[in-house]
Amino acid sequence: MTMSSTLNIQNLTVSLRSGLPLLGQVNLTLEPGEVRALVGESGAGKSMIGKAVLGTLPPAARVSGGQIFLRGQALDRLNAAQRRHCVAQSAALIPQDPLTALNPVRRIAPQITDPLTRIHGWSTERAQARALDLLERVEIRDPARVMRSYPHELSGGMRQRILIAAAFAPSPPLIVADEPTTALDVTVQKQILKLIRELQKEVGTAVLFVTHDMGVVAKISQKVSVLFQGRVMEDATTEAIFTNPTHPYTRALIAATPSYADPSRSFSPVPAELIAQMKSEIAKEEVW
């Protein structure tokens, strides 16, 4: 473990109160300025990793083993208040659904500036200026008017851009992006991915990017963790994943992604035999 890692997760296990494991022995590191994609099918536990880091696991789930180091700080050694403070200082979330993530009865401005003034201790003027600046960076026309607007007055694409601006505003060392483009159509998705990439380079933020789209993985990330039933099946550079994937599941996920450029390749679901085989391997491990 290098002390300089933004995020270092070691043997993380998350289970339901009933004992059912959601994540098993997850290991991953995230260096400053790096984008790591967490990829897998629905229910693979990709979002759960981000939630465990941010401390927003659902009430029924808890961390039952392993450690999370956020900028070298072991989160399990902190009490609840310290942990909240530590996470709020160094991490931000870009949520999946822009329609429900903003408070419908508050204007946009305080929703961006509140964390800056309350958590990061900025002056109101500085927070306002930063919010305006970032809204411009995410290509929102007339940011002053948007700051005074309510969420319902804005389109889905605009709201998602506002959430991105809000996440990047304090220049946090870590951003968890939980499927930030799944709700958007392809042209808006490309703009948003481009934005995340530019801001991430500019600010030097490390991003944990949750997605199920291997196409998005190929474009945005440098490292990839492939997840299945809460286990990391493969952890490699993006280049290795696409040029020389070692795990059959990784190959199956790439094969399941349609490509207009290659109509001769018939895309196919992950084979049932492969899933059965991986499940039995996981079951064996659990007995052990």
Binding site: V186, T187, Q189, K190, L193, K194, R197, D213, M214, G215, V216, V217, A218, K219, T238, E239, F242, T243, I254, T257, S259, Y260, A261, P263
Partner: peptide
């Protein structure tokens, strides 16, 4: 339509699709 798209918008829609392959120049 896919072999010879007539309109710029179609080409824009095609270019916006992230294909599952490495491409440094996509952005």
């Amino acid at each position: 339509v896919f072999s010879a798209p007539q309109s710029d918008i179609t080409r824009l829609l095609l270019d916006a699709i992230p294909l599952p392959e490495l491409d440094d120049k996509w952005f």
